[in-house]
C-alpha cells in the first residue's frame, strides 16, 4: 500500500484556457505525486504553467482533464460543498504580500477569517490567532493593525499565519519569497522549514529562484511550456541534469561568487519562448534545443524514468 504515503497524486492534468486568440494549453498533461512530509519544488520560467498547475491542483481553476487525488480521494470533480473539508486541509501562500491581504481588515481578522469559514468554535479562534502570530514571529499587539502598517516580510508572515489557521496538511507556496529582500528571504524560508518539521506539513514550492528551490526541496520538477520536462531528487537534478532545457536553465543561475561566476559557462538558449497559443509540434523545446534531431519535430517525448527516480522527457537523455 504505497499510496498511503502519498499526500497528492496528479495524473495527466490539463488546464486549457479559451481566449479570443485560441486555446492556451497552460498545463498540458502533467503527472507527479508528492509524498507526505516532502517538499516538491516546481520551477520554470514565466508562462510555463507552474502557477496555473498549483491553482488547478487546489481547484481554484477547474481542471480541463486529468485527476487530482488528495490523500487517496479523487477531488477532481467534487462540488464546492464536497470540496470544503478538503480545502481546510490544503492552503495556499501567495507571491505578493501586498495584494493578497485585504487592506480593510485587521491582521487579526485576516487570520480568523478562514477559521470562520471552516467553523472552528468561536471561543477558540482568538487564542489560536494569537498563537499563530507568535508562531510566525509577530506578537499579539499586531492583531489590531492593518496590513499597510507592515513591511513586505511581515506581511508574508501574516499570509503564512492565515494559511496555518485551519491546520492544513498540505500548503502550496506560490513564489512566497520572490517579492522579499534577500536579507528577509532567509528568515521566511527558515520559518517554512521549521513549521514543516513541527507540524509535519507537505509543500508544493513554486518558484523561479533556482538556488532557493534547491535548498528547500526534496525533489524538483522542471516545467517548460505546460509540460514537465524533468523531475528528480533535488541534488540529483542540480548535479546531474539530463534535459537540455534544465541544463541551460541551471547554467544561467547567477552565482554569488566572482571566481566561479567567471569560470562557469552559460548554455545560451536560442530565440524566444514560443507562444503557448501555438506550441511547437513534437517536443515543444525542439525550436530552441541545440541537440535537436529530425524526429524531435514530429514525436512528442514522454516523461520516462532514466535512472532511479530520475524522470526526463528527452529521448536522448
Amino acid at each position: 500500500m504505497s499510496d498511503v504515503q502519498k499526500m497528492l497524486e496528479v495524473k495527466n492534468l490539463r488546464k486549457y484556457f479559451d481566449t479570443s486568440a485560441g486555446t492556451v494549453k497552460s498545463v498540458d498533461d502533467v503527472s507527479f505525486d508528492i509524498s507526505k512530509g516532502e517538499t516538491l519544488g516546481l520551477v520554470g520560467e514565466s508562462g510555463c504553467g507552474k502557477t496555473t498547475a498549483g491553482r488547478t491542483i487546489i481547484r481554484l481553476y477547474e481542471p480541463t482533464e486529468g485527476q487530482i487525488i488528495f490523500n487517496g480521494v479523487d477531488i477532481t470533480n467534487m462540488s464546492s460543498r464536497e470540496l470544503l473539508p478538503f480545502r481546510k486541509r490544503m492552503q495556499m501562500i501567495f507571491q505578493d504580500p501586498y495584494a493578497s491581504l485585504n487592506p480593510r481588515m485587521t491582521v487579526g481578522d485576516i487570520i480568523i477569517e478562514p477559521m470562520i469559514i471552516h467553523k472552528i468554535p468561536k471561543d477558540e479562534r482568538k487564542d489560536r490567532m494569537i498563537n499563530l502570530l507568535r508562531r510566525v514571529g509577530l506578537n499579539s499587539e499586531h492583531a489590531n493593525r492593518y496590513p499597510h502598517e507592515f513591511s513586505g516580510g511581515q506581511r508574508q508572515r501574516v499570509g503564512i499565519a492565515r494559511a496555518l489557521a485551519v491546520e492544513p496538511e498540505f500548503i502550496i507556496c506560490d513564489e512566497p519569497i520572490s517579492a522579499l529582500d534577500v536579507s528577509i528571504q532567509a528568515q521566511v524560508v527558515n520559518m517554512l522549514e521549521d513549521l514543516q518539521k513541527e507540524l509535519g506539513l507537505t509543500y508544493l514550492f513554486i518558484a523561479h529562484d533556482l538556488s532557493m528551490v534547491r535548498h528547500i526541496s526534496t525533489r524538483v520538477a522542471v516545467m517548460y511550456l505546460g509540460k514537465i520536462v524533468e523531475l528528480a531528487e533535488s541534488s540529483e537534478l542540480y548535479e546531474n541534469p539530463k534535459h537540455p532545457y534544465t541544463r541551460s536553465l541551471l547554467s544561467s543561475i547567477p552565482m554569488p561568487d566572482p571566481i566561479k561566476s567567471d569560470e562557469r559557462e552559460i548554455i545560451k538558449l536560442a530565440g524566444e519562448i514560443p507562444s503557448p497559443l501555438n506550441p511547437p509540434t513534437g517536443c515543444n523545446f525542439h525550436t530552441r534545443c541545440q541537440f535537436c534531431k529530425s524526429d524531435c519535430e514530429k514525436l512528442r517525448p514522454l516523461l520516462r524514468e532514466i535512472s532511479n527516480n530520475h524522470y526526463c522527457a528527452c529521448p536522448f537523455a
Binding site: S183, E193, S211, R214, Y238, M255
Partner: peptide, 15 residues
C-alpha cells in the same frame, strides 16, 4: 543569507 553553493541543505543564516 543565500544558500551556500557548497552545501545547499545547510540551514540559512538570515539577518
Amino acid at each position: 543569507s543565500v544558500p551556500d553553493p557548497e552545501n545547499f541543505k545547510e540551514r540559512l543564516i538570515p539577518i
